[in-house]
């Protein structure tokens, strides 16, 4: 399998008056062509910041401090806005969480999708309406002929997400980043959207980075899963491996929340995600970790490989 994306020691910091928020703090991973990589983590784990960094959509006060993002041999952290503009929507595209607010209320859905073609191929918007209708058929939009003329407020949440997906796949990009694409939708629509993303991958060979807090969803759809905690990767492995044999205590916690023992009450991991301005010393998870050892509060765990998997925990070091 050929590698399409390699992220090396990426750090994205928000420079706020209260201090520096280290939202992504030394993240490395790679992605193969046609692969679906799931990224899981709680709110505040840095997963959405990672998504925006990969799509070149960070805005001040967020800054890439260091690290490299190698996409098709090109270091994206060195690109200027003009080069990014030609890349975005054509080679790298994004699907966002809340389809209602990510569409402009004053234009028809068809116009907004056709803008992708206009941006990269030029010419008039109206020239691309037939292509948009084809896209709508591909994403299984009901009544594509009529829907290209609909405004966002005339469409349901599921339809609007299909509009955003149409934009994302219009130019058959190499990489689609989906940030919580189903969280705002109800469960049946959720399942349809997931199925749709799978079909798109099969048809176009696009790689997909699927970001969600819903680990159960990832276990179903992703080839590999990356677990993030407080701006760092704590574990990365094949979905089946993560499911069968989670290594990191945090991953185990997430899984136990999914599959509670019969007699147990609703399970949860005690505590909450730490401040990223002043993260705990040593392992960032140690204050909440059921298996914490004295040295966990002193020594920051290295990222190590265990049978081809990646984990960052002192239990597996030395």
């Amino acid at each position: 399998m050929s590698e399409i994306l390699r992220v090396e020691d990426l750090r994205v910091y928000y420079h706020l008056p209260q201090g520096v928020v280290k939202a992504v703090d030394g993240v490395s991973f790679s992605l193969n062509r046609g692969e679906i990589l799931g990224v899981a983590g709680e709110s505040g784990s840095g997963k959405s910041t990672l998504a925006l960094a990969l799509a070149g959509l960070l805005r001040p006060p967020a800054v890439i401090e260091s690290g490299r993002i190698i996409f098709n041999g090109l270091d994206l952290t060195r690109l200027g806005e003009g080069e990014w503009r030609r890349l975005r929507g054509r080679k790298i595209s994004m699907v966002f969480q809340d389809p209602s607010t990510y569409l402009n209320p004053v234009y028809t859905s068809g116009f907004q999708v056709a803008e992708v073609y206009e941006a990269h191929r030029g010419g008039r918007i109206s020239r691309y309406m037939d292509l948009v209708k084809d896209l709508y058929r591909k994403v299984k939009m009901a009544d594509p002929e009529r829907r290209v003329h609909s405004y966002p407020h005339q469409m349901s949440g599921g339809m609007k997400q299909r509009v955003l997906i149409s934009m994302a796949i219009a130019e058959k990009p190499d990489l689609i980043i989906a940030d919580e694409p189903t969280s705002a939708l109800d469960v049946t629509i959720q399942a349809e959207i997931i199925e749709l993303l799978r079909e798109i991958r099969a048809e176009t060979g696009s790689s997909i980075i699927f970001i969600t807090h819903d680990l159960a969803l990832l276990l179903e759809i992703a080839d590999r899963i990356m677990i993030m905690y407080a701006g760092k990767i704590v574990e990365l492995g094949r979905s089946s491996e993560i499911r069968e044999k989670p290594l990191h205590p945090y991953t185990r916690g997430l899984l136990s929340v999914l599959k509670p023992e019969r007699k147990q009450k609703l399970a949860s991991i005690p505590g909450s995600i730490p401040s990223l301005i002043d993260p705990p010393k040593g392992c960032r998870f140690h204050p909440r970790c059921p298996m914490a050892m004295p040295e966990c509060s002193r020594i920051e765990p290295k990222t190590i490989k265990v049978n081809g998997r990646i984990v960052s925990c002192l239990l597996y070091e030395g």
Binding site: R88, G89, A119
Partner: peptide
């Protein structure tokens, strides 16, 4: 947010 979408499309 729709401005983020517009940027993500590659619009000028």
């Amino acid at each position: 947010n729709h401005v983020v979408t517009a940027r993500a499309k590659g619009l000028s």
